[in-house]
């Protein structure tokens, strides 16, 4: 172990030069960006699916079945496999699409499935009578959703949604296999350039931790804070 330590001390000044630090910062930003965009779009699409699944109109029954099929399917396929399918489906159609964009599409597909389940649990936690009260006051469906149901669902939606985002920060590591220059890919580059894997991947682990841990804490805090109260 003595030699490993000596090697780390020797390499450290070169590793932590300003060029490498900037490169790491960009990679971290890409990891965070893919997660943020994927989860935001996934939330909106997931909300749409959840509302669809909660609808009662008979004409929407086939759409409800498709929504269930989508959610159940995408929650049972490894993210890596989804990445492969999306990559090879998009590249022939859009040869100019960037790898980051393609990976983000794959993230959106998956996050829609997971977040729709989370949102659905939230919407279902609001008593039906709240909707009836809105209905007799002549609220339309959209107004009832955004002014009555959704504001009361946040306490059920937010903690697992944040936990999901934490999971996704880590899962985006798989996009490195496609060549997306995010954190994990940055680590591989350092190791290929001859830096010690302990230093290269060690730094990457620390950076992931720095992105993920505050969010985990936020999730745990929200879970405690939001549990009892229903009003903001």
């Amino acid at each position: 172990m003595g030699t490993l330590w000596e090697r780390l001390v020797l390499e450290a000044p070169e590793f932590f030069n300003s060029y490498n630090l900037l490169f790491l910062a960009e990679a971290a930003a890409r990891t965070l960006g893919m997660t943020a965009i994927g989860c935001s779009i996934g939330f909106v699409a997931g909300l749409a699916l959840a509302v669809l699944r909660g609808s009662r109109a008979a004409t929407l029954a086939p759409a409800r079945w498709l929504a269930v099929l989508y959610v159940e399917t995408f929650r049972r396929i490894p993210f890596l496999v989804i990445l492969f399918v999306v990559l090879y489906a998009i590249q022939p159609l859009f040869p100019d699409a960037s790898l980051t964009a393609i990976a983000t599409v794959a993230i959106c597909l998956l996050s829609t499935a997971y977040l729709s389940e989370i949102v659905r649990a939230g919407l279902e936690s609001v008593p039906r009578q709240q909707l009836e009260a809105a209905e007799v006051l002549n609220f339309g469906p959209a107004r009832a959703l955004f002014q009555v149901v959704l504001p009361q669902s946040w306490r059920v939606i937010l903690p697992p949604a944040v936990a999901f985002a934490v999971m996704f920060i880590k899962d985006t590591a798989l996009a490195s296999h496609m060549g997306v220059v995010e954190l994990t890919f940055a680590g591989k580059i350092f190791v290929e350039r001859g830096f010690s894997p302990v230093l290269g991947f060690g730094a990457i682990l620390v950076l992931y931790f720095a992105l993920s841990w505050p969010l985990s804490r936020l999730g745990a805090y929200l879970e405690k804070r939001l549990a009892p109260a229903r009003h903001p």
Partner: peptide, 24 residues
């Protein structure tokens, strides 16, 4: 209603005014 069904996310005043203001 028997169970009042006030909107839990709104104040008393907002419960009373929301429909007259925004719908009527």
């Amino acid at each position: 209603f028997q169970q009042y069904n006030l909107f839990q996310n709104m104040t008393v005043l907002r419960n009373v005014t929301i429909a007259p203001l925004e719908i009527q």
